[in-house]
Design a protein around this nucleic acid. Sequence first.
RNA 1: GUGGGCGUGGCUCAGUUGGUUAGAGCACCGGGUUGUGGCCCCGGAGGCCGGGGGUUCAAGUCCCCUCGCUCACCCCA
Length: 418
Amino acid sequence: MQALKGFKDILPDEVVIWQRVEEKARDIFQRFGFEEIKVPILEKTELFARSIGEATDIVEKEMYTFTDRNGESLTMRPEGTAPVLRAFIEHALHLRRPLSRLFTIGPMFRHERPQKGRLRQFHQLSVEALGVDHPRLDAEVIAMAWLLAVELELTVSLELNSLGCPECRPDYRRRLVDFLQARREQLCDDCKRRASSNPLRVLDCKSANCRRINADAPSILDALCGPCRQHLEAVRHDLDALAIPYRLNPFMVRGLDYYNRTTFELLTDALGAQSAVGAGGRYDGLIKQLGGQDLPGIGFAMGMERLVLLIRERQKITPIGPDLFFACLGEPAAAYGFNLLHQCRRRGVRAVMDLRGRGLKSQMKQADRLGARRVLILGEDELNQGRAVLRDMTDKSETNVPLGDDPVELLSALAGTN
RNA sequence: GUGGGCGUGGCUCAGUUGGUUAGAGCACCGGGUUGUGGCCCCGGAGGCCGGGGGUUCAAGUCCCCUCGCUCACCCCA
């Protein structure tokens, strides 16, 4: 038996890195006033079809969808925004605060061919700020994503674009389609298909030839309506004011239909074909589309696996060993030690002991391998004399500590040298 | 869905033009030290060589099929 294709076990050594990333993310998000929300992994299929877009690859061929016993179509969430918005609407969170700042961390599911930095079950940090359409919010959210990357010491670059709004995008789209139709024969096969299915996609084609053609394509930035243009300028102004470096990329496209106006990506060149470690944008209109009030929103997602890969490339993480290892010799000492062990744990000490009655040498070796800071040696002699040997594994020093039902002196000895 | 690369102890990998009991390092266990770890030395355990079929006196090695992993395309975090 083995795990499904694209589904991975995360072993203890790696979990250490995950914990570091999650801890840092929670820390930063909370600094920005964001609150954690936990939402279900399973939702009605309709939720994703209506939010992500019926015609997207995700909805068309990547979702884990099945029919429940009562005949209802359910889907394992392929992204985090839709469930959070559903919860936001269902619990009328907009009535509690003018601006809801929410984030969630958890697994997402997409039936794709796995490759480096891409899995069928993957994990995202998903962030949403709902209820305010001020461009400063865009800058704030981008600044938060940027700060997380900075504090995780990742080398990433930020790209920014605007996709316009329902006022100006259709117009631009028409112009782009005209442009592409006129050059259809010169495009690569993929782009010929994209030209009709999703013309904006042609813009970020990697083929050198297509890029050459695209250089002359009409730019979305020239096609923005007045309000969209002002919005983008305001976001840029605030990013400049915060000294956050970015590159304006009019060719950047998002894969989900709900985005409008501001979109952005955090990019790396260290993950092979997967360059985006985080991406997001504004989705005004989506909340209404899902049956809520007409409230604006902006959010982003970061890929946990990709963050972890980037950190693992850079630094060796050593797992935290126990504070104290109990080396007991003989059953009476082991029985006594077991009780003492529990007392230590009750007082917050990370402590373990070998249960197999092995020799001292073997137990010392175990303690060393586990990275234990100290070893308490407890044999017949110590039991009789009412004191045990506390050995410091780093400097090899040993001290005698008195035993007792309430091991205060042992604990203070532990705390004293910490 | 399409294409390339790779499958040998827990992990990372050797294995010659097919040729006797398939090796190393790390990890694990025991000993060298009657109750003291790391370094060193000695020993031990652990392998349907991914699976099936074929060629051959003989297959880890060659051929076919299959499964898995991986990287890339598509698409995306």
